[in-house]
Design a protein around this nucleic acid. Structure first.
Length: 913
RNA sequence: GCCCGCCUGGCGGAACGGUAGACGCAGCGGACUUAAAAUCCGCAGCCAGUUGGCGUGGGGGUUCGAGUCCCCCGGCGGGCACCA
């Protein structure tokens, strides 16, 4: 069926057909030649700035539908804002470092650089074919030393500012990729790319101190009022602020020199309910215990082995080992006045990374502690009495009590409520010098070291004499060597014969270059700032970032809600501290788009069942499907995110080649709201294509081109299309003009609120209305009427030209090529492109209908409608409403208790009897 | 387990508390055509079947009036998940 839309389909000679393939590249050239989308680093034209940015792509090979959706959304905003008089910066670049390039090198022997740059060339051409209003002069790739050299400079500035730390730390080790992963890259205990079970390993790593900004990053979320609420919630949760206390427990007997254990708790008010202390397996005291007790060592080893993988299995059985050590309670005394002591356990559920790596267990008021206590038969002492409970009889069963109440069994805290008790116990701990109130964060410092070749080298040198020495600024960039091999696992930079052997910049003795490279999230944490001055010989030019930053509208997938956005927020603050820019937040507005989905198809079930690409499948009218070549039945599967493994992908390049960029853009915008997942369907694309042809026929239907414009009129701006406006309009013409101007208003409103699907719907209605206002008919077909020669009685021809002109301008953010084509046909010899024209303004006089249709209800039920002139009085409207036959019938025999009139909207009669 | 979001025809979805289902897709009937495609005209929530009744996951409430606001319940989707 879709075959009919290819160039093999015969087109009737009298049907004008818009030749997409010729027209679109022509307009793309016109925009490029006239530099429509170029802006200066520091513009002097005084227009307000607007920075639109979509998350830049990883050059994986070719663009996919997710890119098409993302960049179409951004382009609609860019083109619309440009028309609204903003100086719009809309750049594009490449997030070009990363593992797939190395995988290609290992699997196919292609050098990562060659693979990456070839992909960039391919994808650039595909993006250009989409007709995006990008300033290509700003393009860069992060794998270019001209970019990453500045990144190295930023790192050294951060280092000097105390924002970088090198520390020995437990890291997540991906045994398949042979690299360290950030916590965020571990999903359910597995590497986010390889899917391999992650192991714990201790390494010396570079960290960026994002935790220095935890408080700020959390607090500033409240200022991001143009961010989706859920993204802010996700970030707040990720940063994870908690208030509590840190306190030290003295060991009854010191163990291997360790005399006390610090714990962190958010419930210091339950301190008297303690029955044990639990250590993380990686805790130093655990190690000390293991040194004496081999069984403790075995338990720790078991935890390390199962640790993360066990968490996956949800059963998450709490396990512990009693070290035999005991700690003294700071307050509880026995009858002899001696401090009461509690056992010290090693427990698999205590995390070394959070708090102090040790907790005190209060089973009565913490479910996890309760489970542990029940399993190992430890004490359960309630200390918070729920309202209405009797202290003599209240006890804990299998559920911990975590609600509010009155403290009891707790010495000096007895009788206080939970919050007051927290304050009291913290004061007491501070008085005794054994603890203090403390805010804790879930956020961890950002480990940026990766044992990888295809990334930005970390610019430091390790010298046996001088220690870690930063590469001097004048030696930047530290370039990746090209001559590397991938014939063995691990980091090729490590195996390189010469690259890492350098003289120490400080003492000149032989030293080693750092062979780790940066996490690629570093590359994407400041690219938006680099776009402001992509050629600057420093990371950013201050005057350029001062002008353009922050990004006014950032658009991308929800999958970056936490990491990329949080890192970018941190980088912006770090760059501010090091004097590179002067904003706190990089993205003033954020929009997160939904995924593009498609039906999936597979061959008949069985051992050889395989996924099929959509273009291998023919859908039958009855909803079933068969294989295009074999005719075998095909199982139509779920609609799900496009993925290579399910083969439910549609190649944008093929779609654009067949239907044109405008059709792809229009369809991807039309189907549903952009924040939701959308389903790509062949029928939907075909429908969008039909619309492009219909718009084209509308302009053809106007007949002769307009005569030469009247002097003094700018042919591009004048919506009257270069003709004198008639003195009088017929009713049809008046109605059309009102539709035209109401459409300007409604499309504008829809675009402002990202309701692009609604904007599209309004434009369909508008096109229908223009076709229906045809003085001759047939209404929606190719017509020869309405040319508007000398006798344009009733001004209908003028009104139709105005309507088509406005239609072209209103579709231009979504279908820019078709807009230019239509506009050019209305203005032969015209001087300006639609891309250079201001957004049309609605005539306020035409926004109100000549007559209003008002609903009439009786007791809130619709009984009829009436026509009234605008501004009718309540009395008149009600009078007319009463006489409407159907309303009158409903009112018969009833007593009207109340008459409600909402101007221009509704009449409602409240009746009795 | 906690947090968030969503639930409207066959489908995607519209709808300042005011005519629910705009617009599109799919469908049906008709015109044009030797025929098909394309195009055009018309129909289309459900049940009764010309003036009616019922309808926005279910139940309650506020209101002259509820898809929209409030409460309870159900379902679906997403995020986080031993965070002390």
């Amino acid at each position: 069926m879709a075959e009919s839309l290819t160039d093999t389909a015969p087109i009737a000679a009298d049907v004008p057909r818009y030749d997409v393939r010729a027209a679109e590249p022509r307009w793309q050239r016109a925009w490029a030649e006239r530099g429509c989308f170029r802006v200066e680093d520091v513009p002097a034209d005084g227009r307000p700035k607007y920075y639109v940015l979509e998350m830049f792509p990883y050059p994986s090979g070719k663009i996919h539908m997710g890119h098409v959706r993302n960049y179409t959304l951004g382009d609609v905003v860019a083109r619309y804002k440009r028309a609204r008089g903003f100086s719009v910066m809309h750049p594009m670049g490449w997030d070009a470092f990363g593992l797939p390039a190395e995988n290609a090198a290992r699997e196919r022997g292609i050098h990562p650089a060659k693979w990456t740059w070839e992909n960039i060339a391919t994808m650039r051409a595909e993006l250009q074919r989409m007709g995006l209003s990008l300033d290509w002069q700003r393009e860069f790739a992060t794998c270019d030393p001209a970019y990453y050299g500045h990144q190295q400079k930023l790192f050294l500035d951060f280092l000097r500012a105390g924002l970088v730390e090198r520390k020995e730390s437990w890291v997540n080790w991906d045994p398949v990729d042979g690299t360290v992963l950030a916590n965020e890259q571990v999903i359910d205990g597995r590497g986010w790319r390889s899917g391999a079970l992650v192991e714990k390993k201790q390494l010396s790593q570079w960290f960026l101190k994002i935790t220095d900004y935890a408080e700020e990053l959390l607090a500033a979320l409240d200022t991001l009022d143009r961010w989706p609420e859920r993204v802010r919630l996700m970030q707040a949760k990720w940063i994870g602020r908690s208030e509590g206390a840190r306190l030290a427990f003295a060991l009854a007997q010191p163990e291997n020199g360790i005399a006390e254990v610090e714990v962190y708790t958010t419930r210091p008010d339950t301190l008297f309910g303690m029955s044990f202390l639990a250590l993380a397996p990686e805790h130093p005291l655990s190690a000390a215990a293991a040194a004496r007790d081999p069984k403790a060592g075995e338990f720790i080893a078991e935890c390390r082995r199962l640790g993360t993988s066990e968490a996956v299995i949800e059963t998450a059985e709490k396990q512990g080992y009693d070290t035999g050590l005991r700690v003294r309670h700071p307050f509880l005394k026995d009858t002899a006045g001696q401090a009461v002591s509690f056992p010290v356990w090693i427990a698999n559920f205590v995390l070394m990374e959070y708090g102090t790596g040790a907790i005190f267990g209060c089973p009565a008021h913490d479910q996890r502690d309760l489970d542990f206590a029940r399993k190992y038969r430890l004490g359960v002492v309630p200390v918070v009495l729920p309202p209405g409970e009797n202290p003599a009889t209240f006890s804990i069963g299998s559920e911990a009590y975590v609600g509010p109440g009155t403290i009891f069994n707790s010495g000096f805290m007895d009788g206080l409520d939970v919050e007051a008790a927290k304050r009291a116990v913290i004061a007491e701990l501070e008085r005794l010098g054994v603890g203090h109130g403390e805010v804790n964060w879930r956020l961890r410092d950002w480990g940026v070291s990766r044992q990888r070749y295809w990334g930005c080298p970390i610019p430091v040198i390790h010298c046996d004499a001088c220690g870690v020495v930063p590469v001097p600024d004048e030696q930047l960039p530290v370039k990746l060597p090209d001559d590397v091999t991938f014939d063995r696992p691990g980091n090729p930079l490590d195996h390189h014969p010469t690259w890492k052997h350098v003289a120490c910049p400080r003492c000149d003795k032989p030293a080693r270059r750092e062979t780790d490279t940066f996490d690629t999230f570093v590359d994407s944490s400041w690219y938006f700032a680099r776009f402001c001055s992509p050629l600057a010989d420093e990371p950013v030019a201050r005057d350029a970032v001062d002008h353009w930053m922050p990004v006014d509208q950032y658009i991308g997938g929800i999958e970056h809600a936490i990491l990329h956005l949080l890192y970018s927020r941190f980088f912006t603050r770090a760059m501010k501290r090091t004097g590179h820019l002067d904003v706190d937040e990089p993205f003033a507005g954020l929009f997160t788009q939904g995924m593009v989905t498609h039906e999936s198809y597979r061959t008949a079930p069985g051992p050889n069942a395989m996924w099929l690409y959509p273009d291998e499948v023919v859908k039958q009218p009855d909803g079933t499907a068969t294989h295009r070549t074999t005719g075998e039945p095909v199982v139509v599967g779920r609609v799900e995110a496009m993925s290579k493994s399910k083969r439910n992908t549609v190649d944008p390049k093929a779609i654009i080649a067949r239907y044109g960029a405008d059709t792809a853009r229009w369809f991807i915008l039309s189907d549903n709201p952009p924040e939701r997942d959308m389903e790509w369907t062949e029928a939907g694309v075909a429908g969008a294509f039909r619309f492009t042809q219909r718009v084209f026929r509308l302009v053809e239907g106007l007949g002769e081109p307009a005569p030469a414009p009247a002097p003094g009129l700018d042919p591009g701006v004048d919506p009257g299309v270069g003709r004198a406006k008639p003195a009088d309009f017929s009713e049809t013409a008046r109605v059309l003009r009102r539709v035209t101007h109401r459409t300007i208003a409604s499309v504008t409103e829809a675009l402002e609120s990202f309701a692009f699907n609604v904007a599209v719907a309004r434009l369909y209605e508008f096109a229908n209305a223009i076709a229906e206002a045809d003085p001759v008919g047939p209404l929606r077909g190719p017509t020869k009427s309405g040319g508007g020669g000398a006798d344009d009685a009733g001004g209908l021809a003028w009104a139709r030209r105005e309507a088509v002109e406005i239609l072209a301008r209103l579709i231009s953010p979504m279908m820019p090529h078709l807009a230019e084509e239509v506009h050019a046909r209305l203005h032969p010899g015209g001087e300006r492109l639609v891309a250079e024209l201001p957004w049309p303004a609605a005539d306020p006089d035409l926004l109100v209908a000549e007559t209003l249709t008002i609903a009439v209800q009786v007791m809130g039920k619709l009984r009829g409608t009436i026509s009234v002139p605008p501004g009718v009085t309540a009395g008149t409207a009600i009078q007319i409403a009463r006489t409407e036959p159907n309303v009158a019938r409903a009112l018969e025999g009833k007593r009207i208790v109340k008459e409600i009139y909402v101007p221009n909207r509704i009449v409602n009669f409240v009746v009795a009897g």
